[in-house]
Design a protein around this nucleic acid. Sequence first.
DNA 1: CGGGATCCGGGCAGATACTG
DNA 2: CAGTATCTGCCCGGATCCCG
Lengths: 123, 123
Amino acid sequence: MALPHPCASWPDNGRPIRETLDRVGDKWSVLIIGILALSGPLRFSALHQSVPGISQRMLTLTLRHLQRDGLVKRTAYAEVPPRVEYELTPLGSSLRTIVTLLAQWATDHNDEIETARRHFDAR
Amino acid sequence: MALPHPCASWPDNGRPIRETLDRVGDKWSVLIIGILALSGPLRFSALHQSVPGISQRMLTLTLRHLQRDGLVKRTAYAEVPPRVEYELTPLGSSLRTIVTLLAQWATDHNDEIETARRHFDAR
DNA sequence: CGGGATCCGGGCAGATACTG
DNA sequence: CAGTATCTGCCCGGATCCCG
């Protein structure tokens, strides 16, 4: 008789989660969500400065994706100069706890990881 | 006078977090950590089957990365046929809560995201 | 069985220039 | 200011073959 699948309680072997994870798990999303969670609504340029290293293009694309998934709301004001603000939707805000935990974990264990890496590389 | 940076409490504007996030945030890591968290030690082949869609190469690479970062421990048994088991280290286990929350969130809000996407695409 | 090595194509991501 | 457009290089990731 077959053993129960090692990952029985991970729904559909993680299949439906994949697409969701792809959104949250891409290079910039978590960072941007975290920043928006901490700062509230931000303009494009402010966001651009808050995420060091991101290109204009990637910021645009990431925001578009997040918007498409209903995590971020885009509001354009008809002014001159134009002003566009991005903020988390309620759905996006529901990620706040997780993102905060993740950021916390990353800072807490940064040294351990660093050490582990050097130890691993030194062989 | 300069306004306080919008992301003051995100350490170093998220810089040191980036590398850590890159590990956790790549395409397969979270899934693999989640599976190991649920199942305990697994052999390579079992892991391979538990992650539908992953190629052998990517599984190898991802495991190597996780091992390098001290999140996963690899144990090879000198037998015939050879047997290799992967399990979470204590450091890896400390991610268990977060990964579980993430998986929970993904399943909980899968429909909302789906809806948001269709709504967004239909314009 | 558990990988390593190699080849290769597509898309991710940067740089630059331009626009409403 | 907040993007779009275009070009390009490069790395991700799959397929395949091979090895201890």
